Amino acid sequence: MLLHGRLREYRDLFRLGPVLLAWTVGHGAMWFLMPNIVGAIVGDVVLVGVIISLPAVVAMLVDLPIGDLTDRMGSRRLLLSGLFALGVLGASLSYVSNLLGLLAFMVFLGLLYQLVYIPAKAYVMDVSPLGKSSEYLGFEMSFIMLGLALGPIAAGMIISKGLSPNLAGSLLYVFSCFSALTLGVLLFRDCMPHECFTKAIREVLVEDKVFLKELVEYARLKSTGLSILVLTFTFTFYDGMVWTIQPLHYLSFTDSALEGGLILSSFVLPFILFDIPGGRLADRFGRRKILMFGLALGGVSSIAFSMASTVPQLMLSAFIATSGLAFAWPSMEGILTVKTDLGGRGSVIGVWSTARDLGYVLGPICGGLLAKALGLDRVFMVLGVLLLAVMAFTFKIRE
């Protein structure tokens, strides 16, 4: 009876969670393979970082209008359309063999990714009850990170059987997107009324002037909003650098793609284990306190990762570093949720996603530059120092 009550309480999350899990398995596999796919075409670690950042550049251009469209059209139609289009795009990865094809693939990936991510995030913010925003966002992140953890392992296993990175990534991404689409059609429902497509597009372009409504909504958050943008940028800068550098870094320690996938999954697994407990602790004891604890733990452990010399040491320090971020991330998102109004959260998420995507733009680029200048190991030391430095912005946050 108690279990049934708990499942009923979280039924809105379980309408979306399996969809995100199925999608992110393929997404994690593709991003584990992408640095090697790009490297085989361009042959330079700096160019790898630049090209890996291209989807985030495109995403920054569409974050605000997609956020506004989410408020007007509802999450379901945008999310399902994005999954279908990403599945079609994934099928083309096996044919990418030159720079022009690679650039086109990355541009469309950046555009279509936001059609899934922004509606999903806005939906969770809308259904989270008062006092449980961090916990609900922790649940959502756990589904996403479980998929991202399984993806590199699945990719490593397939690569070890002799498939090329392009074909392995294509097969996994197509399967995951269409599996997620099927689950979305069966399970996912909107919780807010929505407008027709043509009316929503017209109002975004004419009445809201594409960007102004979103910026006005976010400006109401004042210093707290600015601090959240800085912290969001830092987290995704960290994440983008890890996913760019680690698939190259592990080759200094092992030739096994499976071990490389396990190391990268160690950067993801804590989000599965600790996002929900971290969200509950933040709701109960204060989001800013948990946020500061997470930044401190992540910073110190990232520095330890840069000094590791064996695969087990790499896995352990990666796990502890991301454990800190797993506590910090839902705390930050919980603050954003309680500060925004129901019905306008798509607009706020659009602005917030711009800072998020800027981190994914600059993280891979700076990662490539730092790796060339300092070496792959030192990149993680820089990341650790950065996490410790941005703790200063938590003092500007008002819950």
Rank of each mutant, 00 (worst) to 15 (best):
L102A: 10
L103E: 11
M106C: 12
M106G: 07
V107Q: 05
V107W: 06
F108R: 05
F108C: 13
G110M: 09
L111W: 09
L112K: 01
Q114A: 06
L115R: 00
V116G: 01
Y117R: 09
Y117N: 11
Y117C: 00
I118L: 12
P119E: 10
P119A: 10
K121V: 07
K121E: 14
V124F: 02
M125I: 04
V127Q: 03
V127S: 03
V127E: 04
L130I: 03
G131K: 03
K132M: 07
E135I: 01
Y136I: 07
Y136N: 10
L137P: 05
G138P: 12
F139K: 00
S142R: 01
F143R: 01
I144A: 07
M145D: 09
G147T: 08
L148M: 13
G151K: 05
G151I: 08
G151D: 08
I153K: 02
A154E: 06
A154T: 15
M157Y: 13
S160E: 14
K161G: 12
G162H: 13
G162M: 15
G162T: 15
L163R: 07
S164H: 12
S164N: 11
P165D: 08
N166Y: 08
N166S: 02
L167I: 04
G169M: 02
G169S: 02
S170H: 01
S170N: 02
L171K: 00
Y173C: 01
V174S: 10
F175Q: 09
S176M: 11
F178I: 03
F178N: 01
F178M: 03
L181Y: 15
L183S: 03
V185L: 11
V185H: 03
V185G: 02
L187G: 13
F188Y: 12
F188M: 06
R189D: 12
R189L: 11
C191G: 15
P193D: 09
P193R: 04
H194R: 15
H194E: 15
H194Y: 14
E195F: 14
E195H: 14
T198Q: 05
K199H: 05
A200G: 07
R202S: 06
R202W: 03
V204R: 00
V204H: 02
V204T: 09
V204S: 01
V204P: 02
L205S: 10
L205M: 12
L205G: 05
E207I: 07
D208Q: 10
D208C: 05
D208A: 10
D208R: 10
D208W: 03
V210L: 15
V210Y: 14
F211H: 12
F211R: 08
F211A: 13
L212A: 15
L212K: 12
K213R: 15
E214Y: 01
E214R: 00
E214A: 12
L215V: 14
E217R: 03
Y218I: 02
A219R: 13
R220L: 07
R220K: 13
R220F: 08
L221T: 06
S223Y: 05
T224M: 04
T224H: 07
T224R: 00
G225T: 08
G225M: 04
L226V: 11
L226D: 03
I228K: 00
L229D: 02
L229Y: 04
V230L: 15
L231W: 06
L231F: 09
F233V: 08
T234S: 11
F235K: 10
F235I: 14
T236I: 04
Y238L: 15
Y238I: 13
D239A: 14
D239P: 06
